[in-house]
Design a protein around this nucleic acid. Sequence first.
DNA 1: TGGCTGTTTGCATGTTTATGCACGATTTAT
DNA 2: ATAAATCGTGCATAAACATGCAAACAGCCA
Lengths: 268, 268
Amino acid sequence: MVKPPIPVPDSGVLPQERQQRILAKLRHDGRVVAAELAAAFEVSEDSIRRDLRELAAQGLCKRVYGGALLPAATPTPLKQRRGEHSARKLMLARKAASLVSAGQTLLIDAGSTNAAIATVLPADARLVVITNAPHIAQLLLDREGFEVLLIGGRIDAAIGGTVGAQAVEQVRRTRADLCFPGACAIDAAHGLWGFDSEEALFKRAMIEASDETVVVATDDKLGAVATHQVAELSRVQHLVVEHSADRATRSAFASRGMAVHRADSVPS
Amino acid sequence: MVKPPIPVPDSGVLPQERQQRILAKLRHDGRVVAAELAAAFEVSEDSIRRDLRELAAQGLCKRVYGGALLPAATPTPLKQRRGEHSARKLMLARKAASLVSAGQTLLIDAGSTNAAIATVLPADARLVVITNAPHIAQLLLDREGFEVLLIGGRIDAAIGGTVGAQAVEQVRRTRADLCFPGACAIDAAHGLWGFDSEEALFKRAMIEASDETVVVATDDKLGAVATHQVAELSRVQHLVVEHSADRATRSAFASRGMAVHRADSVPS
DNA sequence: TGGCTGTTTGCATGTTTATGCACGATTTAT
DNA sequence: ATAAATCGTGCATAAACATGCAAACAGCCA
């Protein structure tokens, strides 16, 4: 009777193609807004909502009021648990991971403690991780959800990651929010120390390329001193220690202006 | 009786040729619209739809409402692709490793076949291995006896190694005796091909940084063609194929001046 | 040449898919 | 608590679709 609706099917973009692009944008930005998409593709919000509903049905996105977000990360079935990480080290890693915010860029050094941290980083926080350790890179690739940058150069087998001039130069050309230099020894009076000259130089470059530095130290590293200094304590903003760490030691670091984080004693 | 239809068979373009052109346009643009193709080839949309249906049946495109898109490249999370090296792949890897001499410097690309090669390289040959794949680097570190150099840069999760400008630049500053670019497709007439633009550029840089190039190809790679050319066959000195490789195919490559190495059929 | 077969094409038919709108329910913000 | 925004569902419409059919053409054999 009256003017019938104008069910224009489309003009230019194929429906399926539109869904793919929505998915691509979602994966890039971490979220999409229905109204924006409707304007961008020149279709009604109804169609966009239908698309998002379909994608959500396939588990490719999570439907929320106003748009959609990335699907909730798989809660890590814990199937692939590495026996190497002791329970204590995992507690330490969890506390360290809690210092990370979504969207940050992290610089992660080689080392078993840092590998433990990589296993507990949130996969849905759109983190960018720069590392010199192939083991850690592989770990994060397997978990999916991380953008991983590799530091090139010659690998020191004893360290398990690249060090040396090329690695240092490459780190200098990067910028990170947070860095985790593996600690060889840390002392409230003398600062952060490494066993090897090249290693110490690399860690120093990491710290200088980051806004903030987190040192994660098992008990045996606290108060110890090695041969090559990495940095003064003034460059270290956070120290993560085990639950069993000595109270006096903790306050010694705290009095130097560092935030001291004590790991839990039992799994939460 | 009435006006009979005018089933003009065609004017100038053969049906098969039309399908090839549609496929070319699809691979160039990533999508094709049925209506546009009908106008371009001056045939009815019905014929175009028939073409698209045939191409889709061959898995060369994905049929969608309004046209067609590139087939959903299922990158097979590579976690499972790496799961275990089949016996056939191991035979290939052994033959490839036999081309390596003591003291050489190798450039090894990412990929499951190359990972298999890394597991069978002689550990006592004082080899220097340069790789862009953290998985392969880790493999060699665990085996001990290798000097490993890492190519830095952003890691493509689908590839499992670094690609991009930074990786290419770093490869250009190295020099190797032998390189193993992972093959996506190799054709006696058209050369070596890759699926991804960045990937192809990186492989090309690898080849240019090496004295000799070895391509290790499973049967499904032989005679196939992908979208981005890596190099002419004149840059490839050695081709390693499975025992089951077609005889005619083997001689086709041999007549192009390549040394064709056929893997054993049973473990030695 | 003439008849036969197979392919390709456009057209007609009925079906499926995608869309925008209307309406009421639900959620979020104020 | 009230208003605004967003959501889900049903509906009508048109485009895109699959299918069946007959015409035109090429090749083949007699």
